[in-house]
Design a protein around this nucleic acid. Structure first.
Lengths: 203, 203
DNA sequence: GTCTATACAGGGATAGAC
DNA sequence: GTCTATCCCTGTATAGAC
């Protein structure tokens, strides 16, 4: 139950349900969904295995809640960073800095959100895919704006948008808290890399 | 048993051991290591569950063989692409095109290689980490060469090398064979993106 | 080397008391 | 809402025949 995970699920009630969610995030991130036992999750939450089923119907529902909240947070970050009347370059930099930083700061949640999708039920998966599309659309829109305004030089907008997202998402895979870079430093570096990928001329 | 997987493990003998390996690659890529049963693997190879243990001591050993061969292939690709006396820009482009293309063409193997490391035993994991370091070192060396020769403008060489690898690796996560791009088109696009990330001025 | 049969452990989920 | 106890299935791995 690190400070990291606390933040994203802070408003989940009752308290026991939140503790279970936090335990599940940690366990899923460490071992993966299928290698995690309900006993482990309940143990981390300081409860008996049976108590889990008072708050969640199945282990998969626990994964779905984590995935849903994480993806909603992603969409929100993207919307927030790209809203406003800045230039396309400013909005791209803001979005990438924020998105990459989130995947470093919340690498535990991020790992579950990005790499455990296959364990979701078909219906839950479909719901998550809709959220993922929104995130992609927002970023692609920023690249399109920049090309239209002449700020960016991008041949393949769809491919480049996918690549930029890909770069940010992958931070959750390799980031370690004892890394030589802080989450914000990663955000700053990645915002610069994204501008370069978009063919933005500095100055 | 797609044509894709055939290639990487073509020289594994005897035949039964190879079929098991190919079945395991498919199953691990689809469901993940822990969600895959030995019955499933044996079934894909057209054998009884018990036959698996004639050729492999444990399920984990099967994963290790896949991971080892895949990582050795990665190192080999990197070495081949960055050898020779081309400019740093040529060598970077070649390496990234080759590495990204491999993760698209062999996305099934790639998924297992990149995303199932946590399921390896401690000793096997340590062995794999050594191979991963070599791949990173080679790419970092190319970036360093380019900065030294004035071809590239990179502030954070280590961070940029990591980001370029990250970009290529993540192809295995999102690539689908029915994608709108061929593996080689992805390779070409990513080589261009990597040159941009390295601050290379075209022409 | 491959099969059928099975031992044995582990884990998701529930029953019923408090 | 939480506990203890437990059901019952699944899955890894082995035994022993062919």
């Amino acid at each position: 139950m690190t400070a990291e995970t606390d933040e994203s699920f802070g408003d989940v009630t009752p308290d026991a349900a939140r503790r279970l969610l936090l335990g599940a995030v940690e366990a899923f991130a460490e071992r993966g969904f299928h290698a995690t036992t309900t006993r482990d999750i309940a143990g981390r939450a300081g409860m008996s295995p049976a108590a889990l089923y008072i708050h969640y119907k199945t282990k998969e529902e626990l994964l779905f809640q984590i995935s849903r909240v994480g993806h909603e947070r992603s969409v929100h970050l993207m919307e927030e960073a790209t809203a406003g009347d800045g230039s396309a370059a400013e909005r791209l930099a803001h979005a990438v800095r924020s998105f990459a930083r989130w995947h470093a700061e919340h690498h535990t949640t991020g790992r579950v959100v990005q790499y455990e999708l296959a364990a979701l039920s078909e219906q839950h998966y479909a719901q998550i895919v809709r959220l993922r599309r929104r995130t992609e659309d927002i970023l692609r829109g920023v690249l399109q704006d920049g090309v239209a305004s002449g700020e960016f030089a991008v041949g393949d907008i769809r491919g480049t948008a996918l690549a930029v997202l890909s770069l940010c998402v992958d931070v959750a895979r390799w980031f370690r808290p004892d890394s030589r870079r802080t989450p914000d430093e990663i955000g700053v570096l990645y915002a610069d890399l994204a501008l370069r990928m978009a063919g933005h001329r500095a100055g």
